[in-house]
Nucleic acid binder design. Structure first.
Length: 221
DNA sequence: ACCCAGGGTCATA
DNA sequence: TATGACCATGGG
């Protein structure tokens, strides 16, 4: 367990392929990426279901809705006033650029900077969109990844988002499929409570992924 | 009654 | 640069 690639193999062997992102269209991925901010996916599904039922799962349809009506549809995903504005911003961004088709040819780094200028899109959401909507080979650094890598001694823990992403990508190559699975596996692993308790029962990672560093075993120099 | 979830923005020091 | 409040719903 010396690298992100090793961890990826362990998680994949333990849990198998996750087949993210659950969505029917590219726009549904993008909308889901915004709605899932600090929110359990179950609640996001209800909001996406509301949008579908209202035939409002497209940039044009959303931009035609009054804010209070859009907010009512988004309510189950929480922070609905905030997310109403963020979703509108993302829809304006998409429309101003001629939709997902014409965006698909923009180089990854340029696309990331463009996304980061959109209100409501931070580094993690930008990378999630790059990876899961546009198939770019980027690693999504979320809170679980930070905690897990830190506990395994793969990082110190106080690095910047970009530093962690660079480090992982230098150890993983450039397969979008692998980054897709890796991020999904980390989230699924986290849900199984391994990252929530001081000691996890039945952890599939050799030597465990909990607070072992203090007893001086896993990873580390 | 708490805590957290597939974060980000904004104000403050 | 670095914390902290805030957003707001639903499940454990």
């Amino acid at each position: 367990m010396n690298s992100a690639a090793d961890l990826y193999r362990e998680l994949f062997e333990a849990y198998g392929p996750q087949r993210w992102w659950p969505a029917d269209t590219v726009f549904e991925v993008i909308a889901g990426a915004v709605l899932t901010q600090n929110t359990a996916w179950y609640n996001v599904e209800r909001a996406l279901g509301n949008l579908k039922r209202a035939h409002a799962l497209s940039p044009d349809a959303i931009l035609e809705l009054p804010a209070d009506e859009l907010g009512a549809l988004l309510r189950p995903s929480g922070c609905f006033r905030v997310k109403t504005r963020r979703l509108q911003s993302v829809c304006r961004w998409l429309r101003d650029r001629g939709g997902v088709e014409s965006i698909g040819s923009v180089p990854t780094e340029a696309l990331r900077h463009s996304l980061l200028r959109v209100h409501g899109v931070g580094e993690e959401t930008a990378d999630a969109i790059l990876l899961y909507a546009f198939g770019r080979p980027v690693f999504v650094v979320d809170a679980y990844a930070r905690r897990l890598f830190s506990r395994l001694g793969l990082i110190e823990g106080n690095e910047t988002y970009r530093a962690i992403r660079s480090k992982v990508q230098s150890q993983m190559g450039d397969s979008a499929i692998d980054y897709n699975e890796f991020h999904a596996l980390i989230v699924e692993h986290g849900k199984r409570a391994c990252l929530k308790t001081p000691r996890c029962a039945g952890c599939p990672i050799p030597d465990g992924c909990s607070f072992r560093r203090e007893s001086g075993r896993v990873g580390g120099p």
